[in-house]
Design a protein around this nucleic acid. Structure first.
Lengths: 92, 92
DNA sequence: AAATTATATAGATATATTCCTATGTGTATA
DNA sequence: TATACACATAGGAATATATCTATATAATTT
């Protein structure tokens, strides 16, 4: 699978979305739980989640009425190290 | 020295600026030379260069009338690998 | 000193982004 | 089946961003 780097970096260049990523670092959370960590309204959080999902940074899983989100660390590693390699020589 | 990750990722989430970075990958270039690789007007390129400079991604060097820009690969490595480490466990 | 050259800054406009409120959709429950 | 709940989508307003043209600045040349 191949990632859209521009989409990835646009996604992570917003503090709210980075904070969501931090929340999802160790455990999955549903939208309501995520919302509790912000002042923002739920639709705004849903919007940020859709941007993260569209950039392949998070995946979701439906369970009844709820939607659980979790980080896809493979995407993060792939995009960050890929971009880095694009500009910097590797030391062997 | 400490980098502003949000500023860094905002800077690299624009295709024009990434293309400028690619041009500066192996050699320094002055503004006029950089402009030749784009359809865009010179002030727009200057604007992009100032964003890259402000994010510490490029450094500049004045020589007479000209300003030469070059990549700061330390910044790139530091920000990319720093962000990655923030979210992904290292394998030892 | 005046003209030229290289780059930066200022101001305007079009588009993109972020947030809100209102409403739609799908699932569970009474 | 009607209602409630969890989340997503739509539409609008405020702000940010990218681009342009015009002009300022600073160094060089005539």
């Amino acid at each position: 699978m191949s990632y859209d780097l521009n989409k990835f970096f646009k996604a992570i260049s917003d503090p709210t979305r980075v904070k969501i990523m931090e929340l999802l670092k160790d455990k999955e959370m549903n939208v309501g739980e995520i919302c509790q960590h912000f002042e923002m309204q739920q639709p705004s959080i849903s919007h940020h989640l859709s941007i993260l999902k569209n950039a392949d940074i998070v995946k979701d899983r439906k369970q009844g009425k709820e939607v659980f989100y979790h980080l896809d660390s493979i995407c993060i590693v792939n995009c960050c190290s890929g971009f880095q390699r694009q500009f910097v020589e590797q030391k062997e």
